[in-house]
C-alpha cells in the first residue's frame, strides 16, 4: 500500500541523505558510528531470509539495497579518507552493549517460533531496530545541536517509522487476520524515541 511505500521511501531517502552529507562535507562529525553499526547488525540478522523467502522482487531488492547502503555508510565512516579522521568517538559514548544484550535475550525469549534460530534472529533485529537510534540521539544531545543534514537524516528515519505505524493500522483494518504484536510494540517504542527530536526539529525549522 501507498503508506508502506512512503515509509520505505523515506527510509531509503535517509540513507542517501546521510551518504550525501558525509561525501559532500567530507566529515562524519556528529554521526554516531555505533548507531550505523547497529543498523548493519539489524539488517543482516533480519534479512537472512533473502535466500529462501521470495515474496516479491521489490522486497528482495530493497533488502539488498538496505544492507548495501548501511554497510557503505559504516565503511566510509571507518575507512574513508578524510572522513575517518573526523569521527568523534568521545561524543559517541552511548553504552551500546546495553542495547544489544537485552535485545538478544528478548529475541531468544519472545519470537514467532521458539524452535527456529531464524525467528530468534528476526525478533532480535526488530527489537534492536527500535533502540538503534539511541546512540545517535545521545550524540545530538551531547553536541548541543545537529547539523542540518544530520537532523534531516534523523527526521527521515522517524518519518519512516510513523508511516509504518499508520500502515499497520491500515492493514489491521483492511486485511483479515493481520496481527503482528512483536512488530507493533517495537515500532511504537521506536516512534516514541523520536518524539523529543521531532519537537525540537519542527521548532528549529519554524525559527529558521
Amino acid at each position: 500500500n501507498a503508506i508502506r511505500l512512503a515509509g520505505d521511501m523515506s527510509h531509503m531517502a535517509s540513507f542517501f541523505v546521510l551518504l550525501f552529507k558525509i561525501n559532500k562535507s567530507k566529515s562524519v562529525a556528529g554521526i554516531s558510528l555505533k548507531t550505523q553499526e547497529l543498523y548493519v547488525l539489524v539488517f543482516c540478522t533480519r534479512y537472512v531470509d533473502i535466500f529462501w523467502n521470495h515474496l516479491s522482487l521489490y522486497n528482495s531488492l530493497m533488502k539488498v539495497i538496505f544492507i548495501a547502503l548501511s554497510v557503505m555508510i559504516v565503511y566510509v565512516m571507518r575507512r574513508g579518507v578524510p572522513q575517518r579522521s573526523t569521527y568523534n568517538p568521545e561524543l559517541d559514548s552511548f553504552p551500546h552493549h546495553w542495547l544489544v544484550l537485552p535485545c538478544v535475550l528478548l529475541g531468544v525469549a519472545i519470537n514467532q517460533d521458539p524452535t527456529s534460530p531464524f525467528e530468534m534472529a528476526w525478533a532480535f533485529s526488530i527489537y534492536l531496530e527500535a533502540v538503534a537510534i539511541m546512540p545517535q540521539l545521545h550524540m545530538v544531545q551531547k553536541h548541543g545541536e545537529a547539523e542540518n543534514l544530520t537532523s534531516h537524516y534523523i527526521f527521515l528515519l522517524g518519518l519512516y517509522r510513523v508511516f509504518y505505524l499508520v500502515n499497520w493500522v491500515y492493514r489491521y483494518m483492511t486485511e483479515d487476520g493481520y496481527w503482528q504484536a512483536i512488530v507493533w510494540v517495537s515500532g511504537a517504542v521506536q516512534a516514541v524515541l523520536y518524539l523529543d527530536f521531532f519537537y525540537n526539529y519542527v521548532k528549529s525549522k519554524q525559527k529558521d
Binding site: H11, D49, N53, S56, N59, D113, Y164, Y178
Partner: peptide, 10 residues
C-alpha cells in the same frame, strides 16, 4: 498466516 508469510515488510 504463518510466520514467513507475515514477513512481507522491511
Amino acid at each position: 498466516k504463518n510466520a514467513a508469510e507475515k514477513k512481507d515488510e522491511l
